[in-house]
Amino acid sequence: MDITDRVINIIAEQAVLDPSDVTMDSSLEDLGIDSLGLVESIFAIEEAFDISVPFNANEPDQGDFDISSVSSIVAGIQKLVAEQS
C-alpha cells in the first residue's frame, strides 16, 4: 500500500467512512472530522509512518504541514517521510 492509500485508510477509519468515500480533494471538515478527530488522525499518521508532524491546534494554518485537504496531507507526509528517513 502506498502513502496515499494508507492515509486514506487512516482518515476513513477516523471518519467512520468507507475508504472509497474519501477523495483527494475532501477536507477533513467535509468528512465530519472535528478538532479532536484531527488531533487523533495526526497521531495515527505519526504512528503509522514513524514521523513527527509539526502541528499545533492553536495555529492550524501555520507551519509547513497543510491540513486543508486529503491531498495536501498526503503531500505533507511524503515530504516528512523523505526528510525524516
Binding site: N56, A57, N58
Partner: peptide, 18 residues
C-alpha cells in the same frame, strides 16, 4: 493534545500559540 506553546504564553495576542 497539541495545544501547548513551544515558546511563550501570550494570552489574547493575535499570535498566541498555546
Amino acid at each position: 493534545l497539541r495545544v501547548m506553546s513551544k515558546d511563550a504564553c501570550r494570552p489574547f495576542s493575535a499570535n498566541r500559540n498555546g
